[in-house]
Design a protein around this nucleic acid. Structure first.
Lengths: 189, 189
DNA sequence: CTAGTTTGCCTATAAGCTTTAGGCAAAAGC
DNA sequence: GCTTTTGCCTAAAGCTTATAGGCAAACTAG
C-alpha cells in the first residue's frame, strides 16, 4: 500500500484548514485521519495526542498571524500603523476563524514563552512607541489594544453585530479612530 | 429506589457549577449524571441533548449576569456607572469563569432575542445616555464597551496578564478611566 | 543489488461520551 | 386501592481518544 506521507507539519496545516472549515473545537484526530484517508491510529505516530495537535495548530496560527502583522506594520507609524495592526488582526480572524480561535488556546507558560506570542507583544509595543507613552501606561495600553481587538473580533465572529445597523465595518473604523485619539491624549497628560 | 428529583432547572444550575469547576467545554451529560449519582440516560428525559444543556446554562448565566449588572448600575450615572458596569462584568467572570464562558455561547437568533442578552444591550445604552452621544456613535460605543470588557476579561482569564507587572487590577482601572475620557471627548465633538 | 534495519501505517482493543428504545417501579390522581 | 403517569433504569449502537503489537515499504550497508 502506498504511504500517505504524514508528518507533524502536514497534519498541523491540515488541522488548521479543518479548523477554519468546521471550527477549532471540532478539530479531532478522527476527522483529520479521515481527511488523509488513513486510520486514526496512524496519526499517533506523529502526534502525541489530541492536545498536542491543538497546540501545534495554535503555534502555527500565532506565527502566521505575527507574520501578517509584521508585514502590515512595515514602514508605517502613528495612526496608520495602528489601523494596519488592527486590520491585520481582524482580517486574519475573518479569513481564518478556526486558526484565530486556535491562536487563543491557553498554552502552558514555557510553550507560550517560546511561541510567536512574544512577537505579538513586541509589535504592540513597537506600535505604541509612536504615541510616546511612559510606563506603566504603555503596558496598560498594550493590554487595552489586545482587549479591544480580541474582543471586537470575537464578538463579530460570534455574530454579535449581524442583526443591527450600522455595519461592523463602520464601528471598527470608529473604534480604531477612538483608540488613536485616546492614545494621543494619554501622551499629552 | 429513591428518585433523584431531577428537573431541567436543577440540572442547569448543577451544570453551571460544574462549568465553574472544570470549564464550560468540559461540561458533559455524563459528568452531570455522575454528579447526581444517576445513570446518563436518565438525564435525557429532562434535556433534549448535550447542546440543550449548554444552551440552558448559557441562558442562565446571561440572566444572572444581567441581574448583577442591573444591581450595580442602580442609582449611578456617568463614570461611576461605567466603572460599576465594568466591575460587575469582570467580577462575574472571575467568580464564575465557566458561567461566563457559557454566556458567550453562540445562540440561534430566536433564542438570543428571547434571552437576557437583550437586557445587556439595553443597560449598555442606558449607561451611555450619561455621555450624550448621537447615533450612530452610541451604537459604536456600545460595541466598543462590549469589546473592551469581553476582551479584557477573556485575556485575563486566559492568564494573559499573569506573568508581567503591573497587575491586572491596575490596568483595568486605567482602561475604565480611558474609556470614560474617550466617551466624554466624543460627546464634545 | 541484496540483506538488515528502521519507519509508517495497519488491525485489534479498551474506555469514555452521546443518544435512542424499551422496561419496571415509584408517585400521583381518582 | 387501582390506574395512570412519570422517573430512572438496562441495553445497545455509534463516535471519539488512546495504546499495543504486526507487517510491509523504504532507507542503509556491505
Amino acid at each position: 500500500m502506498v504511504r500517505a506521507g504524514l508528518t507533524p507539519e502536514r497534519l498541523t496545516l491540515a488541522g488548521a484548514e479543518l479548523a477554519d472549515e468546521v471550527g477549532f473545537d471540532q478539530v479531532t484526530v478522527s476527522a483529520l485521519a479521515r481527511r488523509f484517508d488513513v486510520k486514526v491510529a496512524s496519526l499517533y505516530s506523529h502526534l502525541k495526542n489530541s492536545q498536542d495537535l491543538k497546540t501545534r495548530i495554535a503555534l502555527f496560527a500565532l506565527e502566521e498571524l505575527a507574520d501578517r502583522v509584521a508585514d502590515a506594520l512595515a514602514g508605517r507609524a502613528g495612526k496608520d500603523a495602528l489601523a494596519a495592526f488592527a486590520d491585520a488582526y481582524r482580517d486574519y480572524a475573518r479569513e481564518h476563524p478556526g486558526r484565530y480561535a486556535a491562536a487563543r488556546l491557553r498554552l502552558d507558560p514555557e510553550t507560550a514563552a517560546a511561541s510567536a506570542g512574544v512577537r505579538h507583544a513586541q509589535m504592540a509595543r513597537a506600535l505604541l512607541r509612536g504615541y510616546d507613552l511612559p510606563e506603566p501606561d504603555q503596558t496598560h495600553a498594550v493590554r487595552m489594544l489586545g482587549s479591544v481587538f480580541h474582543g471586537y473580533v470575537s464578538l463579530e465572529l460570534a455574530g454579535g453585530f449581524e442583526h443591527s445597523a450600522p455595519g461592523a465595518e463602520e464601528s471598527w473604523a470608529w473604534v480604531v479612530d477612538s483608540l488613536d485619539s485616546l492614545l494621543r491624549n494619554r501622551t499629552a497628560r
